[in-house]
Simulated assay, not measured.
Amino acid sequence: MGKKIGYLLQVLLAMVTLQSCVEDLDFDQFDDLQIEPVIEGSILYVEAPEDIINRAIASNFYSQDFNFDGFSDAFFADRVIDGVVTYLVENTTSKDLNISVDFVDEAGNVLDVEFFNVPAAPPMQQILREIPYGGTGNSLDILINTSAIRVTAENNGDTSSTSDISDAKVTIKSSGKFRLSVK
């Protein structure tokens, strides 16, 4: 009889212990879940050596449209919350330069323009600019409707001087860092 009571108490204790470790399941947790990864990537890279700038007949030594549908891809366009496009312009040439980077839609309309007035080197001139989109920044529609990026560069200096810096060139780089909503 004592063994039966001991066995019954052990079973009862095990059941009470198991019951105290079980929580009610909340299947609505998914609705409260926010998944917002940050993606980052390169957008543009262009460089022009000083000898190319000197050989140009017109002051506008560079003009190119680059097809860019990355922002209009449904995965990005439907999920982007906000982000920043960062530009880095470096000039080691002896030229004062004007550089324009335009976001263009399929119809050829300019949606957004970043203009850089870059002084001549030496010393090396460097311009870093961050442009926010979404939230309190520029409209996300600019990015979503962009289908091309147009880069133009104009020499405001002469076509004969050369920089004292070896391998003199102008470089334009841009990258983007964006927050997306996966859910």
Score class of each variant (00 low, 15 high):
182 V>L: 15
82 D>H: 01
12 L>K: 00
75 F>S: 12
57 I>Y: 10
182 V>F: 07
162 T>N: 11
38 V>C: 08
139 S>R: 08
52 I>V: 14
100 S>L: 07
74 A>W: 15
111 L>N: 04
22 V>Q: 11
142 I>S: 04
89 V>I: 12
93 T>H: 04
166 S>T: 03
11 V>Y: 00
10 Q>N: 12
18 L>E: 10
34 Q>L: 10
45 Y>W: 12
127 I>G: 01
112 D>N: 05
110 V>N: 13
25 L>F: 07
81 I>T: 06
10 Q>Y: 09
114 E>N: 09
41 G>E: 11
112 D>Y: 06
47 E>R: 11
79 R>I: 01
167 D>N: 15
78 D>C: 04
2 G>F: 03
33 L>N: 08
158 D>C: 06
164 D>V: 04
171 T>P: 06
139 S>V: 00
180 L>C: 06
178 F>L: 07
111 L>M: 03
98 N>H: 03
24 D>E: 11
150 R>M: 05
63 S>C: 14
52 I>K: 15
105 D>P: 00
145 N>V: 00
96 D>Y: 06
145 N>G: 00
3 K>V: 02
90 E>V: 10
152 T>H: 06
132 P>S: 05
36 E>C: 13
8 L>D: 01
105 D>K: 00
166 S>N: 10
47 E>L: 05
157 G>Y: 01
78 D>L: 11
176 G>V: 07
51 D>T: 14
153 A>N: 02
97 L>D: 01
101 V>H: 06
126 Q>M: 09
137 G>E: 05
107 A>Y: 10
178 F>D: 07
138 N>L: 05
1 M>K: 12
131 I>E: 04
100 S>I: 09
4 K>Y: 08
177 K>C: 12
130 E>S: 13
150 R>V: 00
78 D>H: 09
118 V>H: 06
94 S>Y: 02
103 F>L: 04
22 V>K: 11
31 D>F: 09
57 I>L: 13
3 K>T: 02
50 E>T: 01
24 D>C: 07
64 Q>P: 05
35 I>A: 05
96 D>S: 13
78 D>F: 05
150 R>G: 08
162 T>M: 12
55 R>H: 11
62 Y>T: 09
20 S>E: 01
151 V>F: 08
125 Q>A: 14
137 G>S: 01
41 G>N: 12
106 E>W: 00
70 G>R: 10
106 E>I: 02
